[in-house]
C-alpha cells in the first residue's frame, strides 16, 4: 500500500501537526516503508478470533464510586502556559459576529 502526499496532508491535519513540503514528502516514503512492514499482520488467520472473549487480566476491578478530595484548582492550573483566576486561558473560540 502506498501513501500519497494528499494522505500525508490529511493525516497532518488530523494530528494537528504542520510540516514543510520537504518533510511531507519524507513522510510519504517513511509511512510507505512502515506500512509495508506492518502488512505482516495479514499473514495470520484471525477468522476464529473472538475479540470480546476475556482471557488475560480478567482480575481487574473498578473502585467504589465515592467522592474524594481532588487536587486544589491552583495546583491543576499551575502548569498552564496562560491562566487566570483558576481557569485556563485560550484565545476566543467563538466568533463575535
Amino acid at each position: 500500500m502506498s501513501i500519497t502526499i494528499e494522505d500525508v496532508k490529511k493525516l497532518a491535519k488530523l494530528s494537528r501537526l504542520e510540516f514543510t513540503d520537504e518533510e511531507a514528502l519524507q513522510f510519504v516514503d517513511e509511512l510507505t516503508a512502515t506500512l509495508a512492514q506492518v502488512d505482516a499482520i495479514n499473514k495470520v488467520d484471525v477468522s476464529q478470533v473472538d475479540l470480546f472473549e476475556k482471557t488475560v487480566n480478567a482480575d481487574t476491578e473498578l473502585r467504589a464510586d465515592e467522592i474524594k478530595p481532588s487536587l486544589p484548582v491552583e495546583q491543576i492550573v499551575a502548569n498552564a502556559p496562560d491562566k487566570k483566576d483558576g481557569a485556563f486561558l485560550v484565545p476566543i473560540t467563538v466568533a463575535e459576529d
Binding site: 493525516l11 506500512l35 506492518v38 499482520i41 473472538d50
Partner: peptide, 26 residues
C-alpha cells in the same frame, strides 16, 4: 502520531487497528 492516526482513520481502522487487535489475541 501520524502512523497512529493513519491506522485509526476512517477506511483503514478495520484493516489495521482491528486486525492487529485480533492478531494480538493469536
Amino acid at each position: 502520531i501520524m502512523l497512529g492516526n493513519y491506522v485509526l482513520s476512517s477506511g483503514y481502522y478495520d484493516a489495521f487497528y482491528r486486525k492487529a487487535k485480533r492478531v494480538q489475541k493469536v
